[in-house]
Nucleic acid binder design. Structure first.
Length: 1161
RNA sequence: GCGCUUGUAGCUCAGGUGGUUAGAGCGCUACACUGAUAAUGUAGAGGUCCGUGGUUCAAGUCCACGCAGGCGCACCA
């Protein structure tokens, strides 16, 4: 059984309708069907970037998920099988912070007030706090993703896959232990996160000893330009506020584009002549201008004023590569001599203070570390007893023994005990270093300097930037490959791929995996205490086996991971005695063992030489978790190997642009490093959703938009459509809408774009459907007849079908190219402009007037086809209304075998139905109609008044025949009797020429202006001559026909309108005959209104009596009696002298009495 | 600071490879239409194309330098 009638809706509440559709989907498992029905077809792989269920979803999630949904649905319509597994990101700092907030604790309390065990248990509970809300959002917005079997990053299977990947990296030599330079508090013995460093009060004004040191330039070929005479002492000046880093100096950094100067002067401490190099902008800080004119030779040691002379100036890049002598040679190695002590460029150098030259100590500064790495400058290091490389300052903040002069001394006075500081003889290390440098002619200036410096929030002591152990993935080793692979990825927008992502890859540094935290995937590496032996565990079973080894040597009492189950086969004789027993197999059965901390920390393994090995305490970066999802979501390689193979790499992913260095990178890196492949082929990076003022949405500002509220007001479709159609997904979206409360309060000045979409697009589409349903139901049209061939349908039908097919092609291409905005706008324009405003408006009469014959059926079929096709094409963006529309149509017609639009197939373009010429003709018809309307308006002649003719001057034959073909359409649209095309020969057309700049520009260059003036002043004869002979000589210029555009802009004797070269003239003369017809039409109009006001149904018949005194009116009505009767469905139109009762119509100056009676059958 | 991105009408956005009158929708104003009617159509007003300089016969479009907003990076997830 299927319905006979198309549903007609009165006063429909859209969100409620969407609820109905949700129920339909759920009851009939449409989502599951949309996947199952594509079984065996090519698969289209989509990866869901896991959201953290730890926070509430915002409106931007609707944006991101709409984009994901669109392409998954589109590909399904194309016949691909699109599985989409949901996922949850469950680890990481935000979870920890929210737990700490909830419990009112800090990181400090972990291990004391709360055990790691309890803390992690709390994290596990908290992280899924909002899953219900997320589930609701997913459902409400119509986002189809498989929430039944999501991957969850904290699950053991997931962790095991991650471990497997880490082990593979380890085996390839891509996982190593190194260090990063981080803020470090020697007194607390711990690194500080930037979070901790951003606490109020950590940055304080302190007064430090600052030293401007002299670095002696090595005289060689590259530096020859600096040496004015043999044996000259040339030194580069560099300034530091941390003198304790000077023994570790490895390079000097300059700004390539900064200006530097070489100055001849004397050292203020040793009084020796010296030539120093520093930034030109900094000269005034080091030299007194009063001494500028003083001859160098006049200087005597001890003089207050030290003379100086600027010898030469140059750009910083000239200094790059120069070598200098090591300042404090405590550590001397061949490698250092070969590679270090060079001038290198750095983009962070400025001339606000110092000398414009920055001293770099690889291990004691973030910039220093980065810039020296980039230029392959080795770090200055000592060695401990085990031969490991160690920095020149130990973890307590003291110089190591190699720094002989200061061995064992704290590098900062603040670290000393109070008694030590109380000693009047005490001199800080900074000061001692300054003294030493002064004595050795290596200091140019020493002074106290007040600046802001970070302090540890726990000990109040200054922090050091210090190298701390970290585990890294050697991404730099495969940098080129990653960049190469990136080129094959289709990025939307392309600039994110080439620019943001491409640059990131170019400047890639090794990926620091280490996090000193509690809730995350533990690094599966066990190490002996001396660091000489280590093992990386790649599976739960491997861990089991290693524990067994440890158990054998007594390091572990039991094996918490699992057990081998020994299965024995025992044979007994009849008496029940054992005659044979045999171990036939051993199965490993894992225990329920949480792979998180603290449990894994308790596991001690044994090295091949018998040393105990302890787990490296770090957790891994949660970004590795999410980057591992292509593998770990399937528990690959332990299970689902085939599944994985089929679904790698992804065809499509999409996330916010802020994920560029996040998920996009980690996916790419892991796939590139381990699988020599991209992880995704197409990626749409979406922009941000901002508030109406362009500010970022945040809880703090209170401008966050609640997605549920928006959808409850306008429904998911309008919200989705608005987001897609309004701007490209990669542009930021200014989300503007008016809440129901604001409407009540009356805030009309705020624009509401969702409402606009809802009304303008969905409203029009609903109206168009309602129009169709109304008449189709009356006529019983159920699309039972065969399709009427296009050739037998009228021009306007063929036109809209042609437009529809063009639309199918364009929309298909737009989706295919991941341009959803283009697709949405195309469909929107088609619906409002072509379908509703032109096709339906022009063809209304065919639906309600004529008999139920071929022409009418053609009209129904045409409109039906447009609506149905539109429903399928818009389904990816507006899954709800498209479903409603499709089902409302299809339930009656049963044309398609699908219960849901989402099971249907994307329409194919019928190339033969596209008629470019027809589309051009119709465009002309639209333009001419519009111009005619404009003329009527100007003359204040109402549309119901028929007019005699319109004149259209046309010069070329193609346009002529095109207009002729659509003249009937135009005439009925504008209510004019005739359309006359006037050609060249009529003598009515006045021609105008416009310069064609494209040809003129290349031909005349500078003379263009003169030629243009010439062309604009061409007379009638000259234009005619140019047309005839193709050329015209005037004032020395040889014009050819292609240099001008000829247009007919006027018609003699008529008022005209023109646009883009098309001109229309309207004959405004109204004959008596026309006037009578106009009156009849007005009469019909009034009568129709009366019918409607009286509440008659469309199909009701009436009898009409008219009393009109004026002879003109009588004659007019009589002459058009049949017309009036047909239009108004009057069975009888009777004329009377006077009527006792009834309505009075006022038309022009006439009063007409009318009585109307319904005819009941 | 570095990198990416955006800036066009009151609002939201279009404006291949440079071509002279810069467009659309909404909003506003006026008018029209009235068997799609809590719809619809037509027209009008509304622009320093962020600024400055340059290239060019010609710049919203190309180049340089700025200004403003947004995002990312600066070892934060």
């Amino acid at each position: 059984m299927h319905p006979e009638k198309y549903p007609e809706y009165k006063d429909s509440h859209i969100p409620a309708q969407e609820q109905e559709i949700l129920h339909f989907w759920e009851e009939n498992k449409i989502f599951a069907q949309s996947v199952q029905s594509r079984e065996g077809q090519a698969s289209f792989t989509f990866y869901e970037g896991p959201p953290s269920a730890n926070g509430m979803p915002g409106i931007h999630h609707v944006m991101a998920r709409t984009i994901k949904d669109i392409f998954c649905r589109f590909k399904t319509l194309q016949g691909y099988q699109v599985k989409r597994k949901a996922g949850w990101d469950t680890h990481g700092l935000p979870v920890e912070l929210s737990v700490e907030k909830e419990l009112g604790i800090t990181k400090e309390d972990i291990g004391t007030k709360i055990s790691i065990e309890d803390y992690n248990r709390k994290c596990r509970e908290t992280v899924m706090k909002y899953t219900d809300v997320w589930g609701n959002l997913t459902r409400q917005m119509g986002y189809w993703v498989d929430m039944q079997n999501p991957y969850i990053t904290y699950q053991n299977d997931y962790i095991e896959s991650v471990w497997h990947l880490l082990k593979r990296l380890y085996e390839k030599g891509l996982l190593y232990k190194g260090f990063t330079v981080q803020p470090y508090s020697p007194k607390a013995g711990t690194g500080l996160s930037s979070h901790e460093l951003n606490q109020p009060g950590t940055y304080r004004e302190v007064s430090d000893t600052s030293i401007t040191a002299q670095f002696k330039v090595v005289s060689e070929e590259a530096s020859a330009f600096l040496f004015a005479r043999p044996g000259e002492d040339v030194r580069i000046l560099a300034w530091t506020t941390t003198p304790w880093t000077l023994p570790s100096n490895g390079a000097l950094v300059i700004g390539e584009h900064l200006h530097y100067a070489k100055v001849n002067t004397y050292n203020p401490y040793t009084h020796l002549p010296v030539s120093v190099v520093l930034a030109k902008d900094r000269l005034s800080a080091y030299f007194n201008p009063k001494a500028a004119d003083q001859p160098l030779g006049d200087y005597a040691p001890g003089d207050k004023l030290i003379p100086y002379a600027i010898e030469q100036e140059f750009l910083g890049k000239k200094l790059v590569g120069l070598r200098y002598e090591q300042l404090l040679p405590y550590i001397v190695t061949e490698e250092l001599q070969a590679k270090a002590f060079r001038v290198i460029p750095g983009d962070f150098v400025n001339t606000e203070d110092g000398t414009g030259v920055v001293h770099a100590a690889t291990l004691f500064g973030g910039d220093d570390f980065r810039v020296t790495r980039q230029h392959d400058i080795p770090a200055v290091v000592a060695h401990d007893e085990s031969g490991n490389e160690v920095p020149l300052v130990d973890k307590q903040g003291r110089f190591v023994k190699e720094v002989s002069d200061f061995a064992g001394r704290y590098v900062k006075a603040e670290y000393e005990r109070d008694e030590t500081l109380a000693d009047p003889q005490y001199k800080s290390t900074d000061v001692l270093i300054a003294i030493k440098l002064k004595e050795e002619n290596k200091a140019f200036k020493v002074e106290k300097y007040v600046h802001s410096y970070p302090h540890c929030w726990r000990t109040d002591k200054p922090v050091l930037y210090y190298p701390l152990d970290s585990w890294f993935i050697r991404t730099t080793a495969l940098k080129d490959k990653l960049a190469e692979l990136n080129k094959s990825i289709n990025w939307k927008p392309a600039s994110t791929g080439e620019g943001r992502f491409g640059n990131w890859l170019e400047n890639l540094v090794d990926w620091n995996l280490s996090r000193q935290r509690y809730w995350g995937i533990p690094l599966p590496i066990w190490r002996s205490e001396d660091g000489t032996e280590e093992i990386c565990i790649g599976s739960v079973y491997e861990l089991y086996e290693e524990i067994e080894k440890a158990r054998e040597v007594g390091l572990m009492q039991e094996n918490p991971i699992g057990a081998h189950e020994i299965v024995s086969e025992v044979k007994r004789n009849k008496k029940g005695e054992v005659i044979d027993s045999q171990v036939i197999d051993a199965f490993f059965s894992p225990n329920v063992f949480d792979l998180h901390r603290p449990y894994v920390d308790k596991i001690v393994l044994v090295s091949p030489t018998g040393q105990p090995m302890y787990r490296e305490p770090d957790l891994i970066d949660v970004w590795f978790d999410s980057g591992a999802m292509p593998y770990a979501q399937w528990h690959y390689p332990f299970e689902n190997e085939a599944q994985f193979g089929q679904h790698f790499p992804a065809d499509f992913i999409s996330e916010g642009v802020d994920q560029t260095r996040g998920w996009f990178f980690t996916l790419h890196a892991i796939a590139g490093l381990l699988f020599d492949s991209v992880a995704f082929r197409n990626v749409v990076s979406t922009g941000l959703v901002l508030d109406a003022e362009g500010r970022k949405m945040s809880k703090r500002l209170g401008n966050a938009v609640d997605p549920f509220k928006v959808m409850a007001t306008y429904g998911a479709d309008a919200t989705r459509w608005y987001m897609v159609a309004n701007a490209n997904p990669w542009d930021n979206l200014r989300f503007s809408w008016t809440t129901p409360e604001e409407i009540k309060e009356g805030k009309p000045e705020k624009s509401d774009k969702i409402e606009e979409v809802s009304r303008r697009f969905f409203g029009t589409l609903r109206n168009t459907y309602a129009f169709f349903a109304l008449y189709a139901n009356l006529d019983g049209f159920r699309f039972e007849q065969a399709d009427i061939p296009l050739s037998e349908r009228p021009e306007s039908d063929r036109w809209i079908i042609s437009r529809l097919n063009s639309l199918i092609r364009e929309v298909g291409e737009a989706y295919q190219e991941y341009e959803p905005t283009r697709a949405a706008r195309l469909m929107q324009d088609f619906t409002t402009d072509d379908l509703s405003n032109w096709y339906v408006r022009l063809n209304r009469k065919r639906f309600w007037k004529s008999d139920y014959q071929q022409d009418k059926i053609a009209a129904y079929q045409t409109l039906y086809t447009c609506l149905e096709t539109l429903a399928v094409m818009m389904a990816p963006i507006a899954p709800f209304y498209s479903e409603r529309l499709f089902r409302d149509l299809n339930e009656v017609s049963q044309r398609q075998a699908f219960a849901s639009v989402h099971l249907a197939y994307f329409p194919e373009t019928q190339a033969e139905a596209i008629d470019a010429d027809l589309e051009q003709r119709m465009a002309l018809a639209q333009k001419i109609s519009s111009l005619t309307h404009a003329l009527r308006k100007k003359a204040k002649v109402r549309v119901r008044q028929p007019l005699k003719k319109i004149l259209v001057p046309v010069l070329d034959e193609t346009t002529k025949s095109q207009i002729a073909a659509v003249s009937d359409l135009i005439l009925s649209e504008v209510n004019v009797k005739a359309l006359e095309l006037v050609g060249d020969d009529s003598g009515l057309v006045v021609k105008r020429v416009k310069p064609n700049f494209k040809t003129l520009g290349t031909k005349y260059k500078q003379d263009v202006k003169n030629v243009v003036a010439l062309i604009q002043n061409l007379g009638k004869q000259e234009i005619a001559q140019l047309e005839r002979t193709q050329v015209l000589e005037k004032e020395g210029f040889a014009l050819s026909l292609e240099d001008v555009l000829i247009q007919s802009q006027e018609v003699e004797g008529f008022s005209v309108e023109s646009e883009n070269g098309l001109t229309v003239a309207l004959d405004l003369e109204i004959t008596e005959e026309l006037r009578a017809e106009g009156l009849a039409r007005d009469f019909v109009n009034r009568l129709q209104n009366l019918r409607k006001d009286s509440g008659l149904e469309v199909q009701d018949k009436i009898n009409v009596a008219v009393a009109a005194t004026d002879p003109f009116v009588q004659a007019a009505l009589l002459a058009h009696r049949d017309y009036i009767a047909t239009e108004t469905q009057a069975l009888e139109l009777r004329f009377a002298d006077a009527l006792a009762e009834g309505e009075t119509f006022e038309i022009e100056a006439f009063k007409i009495q009318v009585q109307m009676q319904v005819v009941r059958e």
